[in-house]
Design a protein around this nucleic acid. Structure first.
Length: 277
DNA sequence: ACGAGAACCTGTTTGC
DNA sequence: TGCAAACAGGTTCTCG
């Protein structure tokens, strides 16, 4: 799925197209997403105005004018396609939910693996909701730095790569950006998380911030089944230095290392064994 | 309490 | 060519 930069890119696309718009029509064709759609989902949404499009971790938060928040998570394969509203078009097999707005824009939620979800949460309860209660710090927020990161990693006996994927510590970093940030910081993905402290934690925090920021600036990277809210592909994928590059020569000048692929916590990890220690 | 591994679901790519 | 295994950007549950 989309990691933080892709979700942020979608957020910006949605904000530009539907902020202030009113929902005219909702078609919920397939309620059995990761969490089933709530009862009367479509009925509760029709007539609502989208006041704000926000993001927390990898969740999109559409603040509605009745105080509820439409929460959207894209899972691994979800995408939101924004464009002129369609009518009388046969929906694709995995186009599970479709919205039409009063400004003639439409949003289609497509997710063939159905690891994504949509639900409605009262605005006042969002931080206490099960999906949000345990979420960690926003890496692009004002208080995230090496000191904070070191504190979050203290005592953790798991490899740093796995710790970065744990959304209870730092949110938004997924499999690709965890690999890329560790490469930038020169830290082995196999290193025990609790040994990432002081200078290493400073380097890693800075690397996380820079790689996420650059990906957002590039409009979000993209894999085969992800499309930005605007419908165009992102290009940050060309900037990946290790992810998907098993066997290639390390991008660092003067390093003759070959990128290795290993499996950690059931996920592929890519790294340079020569310059990541 | 923590960490590892499996499970959720479907499509595409890879290997024999 | 055909079929099975491996793999895919995430989260959450179970088990030891």
């Amino acid at each position: 799925m989309p990691e933080l930069p892709e979700v942020e890119t979608v957020r910006r696309g949605l904000e530009s197209q539907i902020r202030g718009a009113r929902i005219l029509r909702v078609e919920a064709r397939r309620p059995d997403l990761r969490i089933p759609l709530p009862p009367r989902f479509a009925l509760r949404l029709v007539g609502r105005r989208v006041e704000e499009v926000a993001r927390r971790a990898k969740y999109l938060l559409l603040h509605l004018d009745d105080g509820e928040i439409l929460v959207i998570h894209l899972g691994m394969s979800g995408r939101l396609i924004v464009g002129p509203a369609r009518r009388n078009v046969a929906p694709g097999k995995h186009e599970h939910v479709e919205f039409e707005f009063d400004n003639r824009q439409g949003v289609v939620f497509e997710d063939h693996r159905r690891f994504g979800l949509m639900t409605l949460v009262p605005g006042a309860e969002i931080d206490r909701h099960a999906l949000f209660r345990h979420l960690g710090i926003e890496p692009l927020g004002p208080t995230f730095d090496g000191m904070v990161l070191a504190r979050l990693l203290a005592g953790a006996r798991t490899p740093i790569k796995a710790a970065l994927l744990d959304q209870r510590r730092v949110v938004g970093v997924g499999n690709i950006y965890a690999c890329e940030a560790l490469f930038r910081a020169g830290i082995s993905p196999r290193r025990l998380a609790r040994t990432v402290a002081a200078v290493r934690a400073d380097r890693l925090a800075a690397a996380i911030r820079s790689v996420l920021s650059e990906a957002i600036a590039a409009g979000g990277s993209s894999l085969r089944d992800y499309v930005q809210a605007s419908g165009e592909l992102g290009y940050f994928q060309h900037a990946w230095k290790v992810y998907g590059r098993e066997g290639e020569t390390c991008a660092h000048a003067g390093c003759a290392g070959r990128i290795r692929r290993i499996v950690q916590a059931n996920r592929s990890t890519f790294y340079c064994p020569r310059c990541q220690t």
